[in-house]
């Protein structure tokens, strides 16, 4: 038995497929109820971490954390700790303090609760280290430099999926696939009679594929959304280090047991397509081109996992175009 549910949240659509082992009475009601509670978790994360809602916890933090440390719940604190960790490991390629820059480039609309500043000012306001301080017992967050603001868009979908998956597992769900906007995907188990949930990265016969089982996939691509800025196309991913639109890869995909971690790293690898520092339990696939203006990858850099924690993996990577890994650990 299959049950499908969907939710509009975080400016995109979340979809969930649940498969039950039992077709008996009440089975469908149970699957649906579990799915609803999981999607309610996504709604809660949206309400808490949205940059576009004045009543979110994130907006509360933005308003107050520069004046005094703001108390947060342990779950949110753990998310901030993960942000700090990935920010450090990626040398700032992933950095939620990019918010003022996103606003200055008009990649956030007027509903954003962060103040609008000039591009020059915004570039001065980016950088987690030295701007965001995490204080334990009790969990608090403080901004130590003026103008600091956080955009959790590079990690929030994954974080929401992690919490939703936990709820599903608690409810006894053994087979499920959940995605946010098709770019962040989490799987429990595998469909009945198959080895995993098959997922294609893009369309066409040459698109790489992933078999996902008890694992999470995140895919980032700069051209997914863009705006016009001073007559030029600006894609929605910015390089926090340079304060400029991303010049790195065309697509970056990561696999991890943790969707938030996969999400953050896929953003970072798009900005800087160098998987050095990628934790050994993660796998990455980066699509690049050397041709000017080309938007379809011509070669792929694949870094398989050193520590394999799941049967999932990238497969069907076009062999003729497969390049040597950029970096091996």
């Amino acid at each position: 038995m299959l049950v499908r549910l969907a939710l509009h949240a975080m400016g995109t659509r979340f979809e969930l497929v649940l498969e039950g082992d039992d077709d008996g009475p009440g089975a469908e009601a149970h699957l649906r109820a579990a799915g609803e509670v999981a999607l309610a978790e996504v709604e809660l994360v949206d309400a808490k971490l949205s940059l576009f809602r004045r009543d979110s916890l994130l907006s509360h933090i933005q308003r107050n954390a520069a004046d005094q440390p703001v108390r947060v719940d342990p779950d949110t604190f753990a998310l901030f700790e993960l942000c700090a960790q990935v920010c450090e490991a990626t040398g700032g390629s992933f950095d939620p303090t990019v918010a003022p820059l996103m606003r200055a480039y008009k990649l956030h609309d007027d509903k954003a609760t962060t103040p609008l500043v000039t591009l020059e000012e915004a570039r001065e306001q980016v950088g987690w280290k030295g701007r965001v301080e995490l204080l334990a017992d009790p969990c608090r967050v403080a901004f130590t430099a003026p103008g600091t603001a956080l955009d959790l868009g590079g990690i929030a979908k994954g974080y929401a999926l992690d919490l939703a998956i936990e709820v599903l597992r608690d409810a006894g769900i053994t087979r499920a696939l959940l995605h946010g906007g098709t770019s962040t995907i989490a799987a429990i188990g595998q469909p009945r009679g198959r080895e995993g949930w098959p997922i294609a990265l893009g369309s066409g016969p040459n698109a790489p594929r992933v078999l996902l089982r008890d694992d999470c996939l995140a895919v980032s691509a700069p051209g997914a959304r863009s705006v016009q800025h001073e007559g030029r196309r600006v894609d929605h991913v910015l390089d926090p280090r340079q304060g400029l639109p991303v010049q790195g890869a065309l697509v970056a995909a990561t696999l991890s047991r943790c969707a938030a971690e996969a999400d953050a790293w896929s953003t970072a690898l798009l900005v800087n397509p160098d998987p050095k520092g990628l934790p050994p339990h993660m796998e990455s696939l980066i699509g690049m081109t050397e041709a000017e203006g080309e938007r379809v990858p011509t070669h792929w850099h694949h870094r398989p996992r050193i520590t394999r924690t799941s049967p999932s993996g990238f497969c069907d990577i076009p062999q003729s175009r497969q390049a040597t890994p950029l970096q091996t650990v």
Binding site: H30, R32, A33, A34, E36, V37, A171, G172
Partner: peptide, 9 residues
């Protein structure tokens, strides 16, 4: 749109 049900087996 919700079943208003809490899941448990």
């Amino acid at each position: 749109k919700t079943s208003w049900r809490t899941p448990t087996s």
